[in-house]
Amino acid sequence: MAWLVLWDIDHTLIDTRGVGRELSASAFERTTGRAMREQAKIDGITEPVIFRETAKLHGLSTNRTDFERFAEALADEHVKRAEDLQVRGLALPGAAAALHALDAAGFQQTVVSGNIKAVAELKLRVFDLDRHIRWELGAYGEDDDTRAELVRLSLQRAGATAADSVLIGDTPADVEGAHANGVRVIAVASGRSNESTLQAEGAEAVLSDLRDTEVLVKLVRGDDRQSK
């Protein structure tokens, strides 16, 4: 039975409804001096890769120092516009109840996210979704470029094995990163990937959303491997 739950954030627990892109654009301009005309693919991609590939779309070559400056600016923009994020964004249906139910069932919960840690913390805090999260066990965008390595790092930090763990996310990249480490996946079709896509990617279970906490707890325990 799993005892560690690895959560994705964007489109799994929350939706920034466009605010996130605006904040990225502000941080990009602060870092590079260029307005962000377009943004690279973001679904399931880590922040360093998004920044690097977005810079390329603008004819720019960047390094780690540039990313660190961008990350600092991005965290600052989130702090400055936290109220805007709270008003315009939302916690996805069932997110708060799911976190509470898994805590009540005795599971440790953390985050494996392409977001930098400061942004991940703020995103969940503004929607009051952070109270059950063990941040020190997670892995974040500044830790590595790849999802698979973030999952590995989180398992290492938690002292957990793949058999101890389950990842909950909404993208094929979440499935791929977890499976690269032998971790079971509960996929949620609350983002841009539908249920059939996530099933085809090999997620062990697929839910339409997080509202049915009884089913979710059973799936995390491994009592029921059937998709909803």
Rank of each mutant, 00 (worst) to 15 (best):
L74S: 12
I42A: 12
L155D: 01
V49K: 05
T171G: 03
R211D: 11
L99V: 07
E47L: 01
Y140L: 03
S208G: 13
A91P: 10
V188L: 06
A96G: 11
Q199V: 14
R81M: 11
K123H: 06
V5L: 13
T146C: 02
L90W: 05
T46N: 09
V183K: 07
F28I: 08
V49C: 07
L102T: 15
D84H: 14
R52P: 03
S190N: 10
V220S: 02
G222F: 02
F70C: 10
S208D: 13
S193F: 15
A205Q: 12
A158T: 00
W7I: 09
L153K: 09
A148P: 02
E136R: 13
D174Y: 01
A98G: 12
Q226Y: 03
L167N: 00
V206H: 08
E38W: 05
D224S: 12
S61T: 15
D43R: 07
E195C: 14
V183E: 06
Q86D: 02
L137V: 02
A25E: 08
L102G: 08
E72S: 15
A200E: 12
L57Y: 13
T32L: 06
F51I: 10
P172A: 02
G159N: 00
G114T: 06
G141W: 09
R184F: 04
L210E: 02
R88Y: 05
V220D: 04
F127A: 04
V119T: 14
E201C: 11
T32A: 02
A82E: 13
S26N: 12
D15R: 15
E38K: 12
A27M: 07
A91W: 04
A203T: 04
D170F: 00
